[in-house]
Design a protein around this nucleic acid. Sequence first.
DNA 1: GGTGAGCGC
Length: 97
Amino acid sequence: MNIFVARLNYDTQAGDLRYAFEEFGEVNSAKVITDHYTGQSKGYGFVEMPNDSEAREAIAELNDEYLDGRTIVVKKANPRNSRSSNTYSSTYSGSSY
DNA sequence: GGTGAGCGC
């Protein structure tokens, strides 16, 4: 499940996100959006977790929690814009409980 | 060098 994390501390790195989410479950990959020129994080990132159950728990627990001293927002991530506009995906992200 | 409401290459 793709997870969207916002309002991160500008000093927070992808490794910090992965470490925080690994506490709740297995983290497939974590990434923080940073500028390529300045290397400064934009304040939000994405975390991908293979287990949907653990992902929901991580979202519920880490949402509106303190990370690196800042309140962060954890929500489901929207499907990234594909190069070709295909019809709706066969599966809706996190719509099935 | 600092900010903040947001979806990545």
